[in-house]
Design a protein around this nucleic acid. Sequence first.
DNA 1: TCAAAAGTGTTATCCTTACACCCATGT
DNA 2: ACATGGGTGTAAGGATAACACTTTTGA
Lengths: 330, 330
Amino acid sequence: MSLAEKHSSSRPGLPLAIGLTAAIVAAHDDEPLILTVPGSPDALASLPSGEFDPLRHRTFEIALRDFVARQTGAPLGYVEQLYTFGDRGRHARLGDRDPHIVSVGYLALTRLVDERSARIGGYRPWYSFFPWEDHREGRPEIIEKTIFPELRKWVEEAPNEFSSSGLTRGERFNLLFKPQARDFNEENVLERYELLYEAGLVEEALRDGREAAKRRKNLAPLGLAMRHDHRRIMATAMGRLRAKMKYRPVIFELMPALFTLTELQRTVEAISGRHLHKQNFRRLVEGSAIVEPTGEMSLNTGGRPAALFRFRREVLQERPAPGLRVGVGG
Amino acid sequence: MSLAEKHSSSRPGLPLAIGLTAAIVAAHDDEPLILTVPGSPDALASLPSGEFDPLRHRTFEIALRDFVARQTGAPLGYVEQLYTFGDRGRHARLGDRDPHIVSVGYLALTRLVDERSARIGGYRPWYSFFPWEDHREGRPEIIEKTIFPELRKWVEEAPNEFSSSGLTRGERFNLLFKPQARDFNEENVLERYELLYEAGLVEEALRDGREAAKRRKNLAPLGLAMRHDHRRIMATAMGRLRAKMKYRPVIFELMPALFTLTELQRTVEAISGRHLHKQNFRRLVEGSAIVEPTGEMSLNTGGRPAALFRFRREVLQERPAPGLRVGVGG
DNA sequence: TCAAAAGTGTTATCCTTACACCCATGT
DNA sequence: ACATGGGTGTAAGGATAACACTTTTGA
């Protein structure tokens, strides 16, 4: 039976709605920022979002740009679809007559036009929602202090239970949270968040009414929570951006037109959450023809003046994977 | 305004439906296969699909597995969400009262249980839908013979028009179709299909009623067409699988429990569409600890008997990116 | 003069690619 | 014997990671 035939006969009992939600990322002063809209009723932050209506907007992306323009005024550059979440239960519904919401998450990048725009609007440091993801100064304290003891208990509860990934609780814990500097895989943001969710350690898990969530009650909060499944969408966005950066020049969507190599490195470090080796980073970037010197110098360095560079748009048609291959050495 | 508040007041005028569509891949005799359901009314093949009803199924994936089981009986192993397509126009609608269909595409992998199952059911060679993607014996003839002349015309029509990727028609043409062996980027399956669609060279473009599609009328067909946007979903699946293979051991979802290294290589080549260097492939695979010898030998080789290997499930917890890094050398 | 940050040179190591060659079976 | 495919050794080249060091500014 084809789809077209099917839906003309029997429609599902519950109406469906499509929510478009954007994780809009910017960077300022070595700090990655996420654009939020203030949570009026319950003080929880939300991501900009809206309901898709095919009569008003021809495509998802057009609709999304429209919502963001109305709600925040931020000019979007790069936009990429992330994932579509359809689970019952993780998107709070007000009543049984309300439609089931399927939410399509997007990653968007934007440049801060001036210094002030970082303060106004709802730009918040993204590590305030994910404090365990900032490994620039080594593994953050919150992991050893708060996450380890709780996760150890969670592992002990069912040491031999396999998840859909084919791993036990202990194995996932070891792979995702144990590693120090070198072995830390910064891309697994969603996997780490989902593990904390399953273990009932993030506030969002309480809404789901799951048993494990009781654990949370007397616990210091693990980062700021968000409404609906917005923190899950943000985790997806962080992971995707950290991965994409390595083979596409998306980082320049966050940079001003002119920048020093150190500023570029600080931004890459801020997004990836890892510390990079200075000398190798410079050589890598200069050698890759992804940027070019402008001849101008920056004097606000605090030390020796630095050469200003600009992004070479031409790389898009020259190289197959023009990103910043961030290894350990940078 | 939050989503929850919004939709309780004003609902969109057009009902929405969510279609779940699966690109189910198997491999047999050096040939990748895609599972189709025969197209009753218009002879076009379709992918297995169904309409999501949140009251019947808790998650998309549960619903998808149910649809596939009913429509084909194939047992799904690995399942991964690909992309959600929401454009008006590319999913044919019967009338104005029908809902707008948003289709969520999935990639699924399955093992053929026996030789016969490759023949029965709707398994079709996937290169019959994408003949320009098989570069195992060098660049296929269809590119030079049929695609080049038509695309050259298309480029000439608007040489300076920029697409959303920031490239001109000529640049996209050069990047996607020009490369020979080494530079061929096998992952860009969707990009190539979309370019052919924009240029009006694939049959599906006719339904969209676009000007360029007129070009097609007197043209040999470029691969078999599919219903709705199913060939687009399949292109997405091919690109994702070709990419994923390199850093996750998904290829083993297509292999029998025991296999020789040559069989493994043939399957990797079949999926990636590229020819690999034998000796290096062997060394890479044996050195990676991703497989282990069983001690048994295969005698159906036609030459010297080959050692049989099995997939080592343990790699999942040992290595961060346990895939088959397919370079030029294999 | 010293701190701070920019910028250069060099080397050991590993991984990728490539080439040449030997081995075990069926016909 | 010879064709067919399985299997091994080794070397060149390039990329990565790590080291030590020099240069130019502001305070």
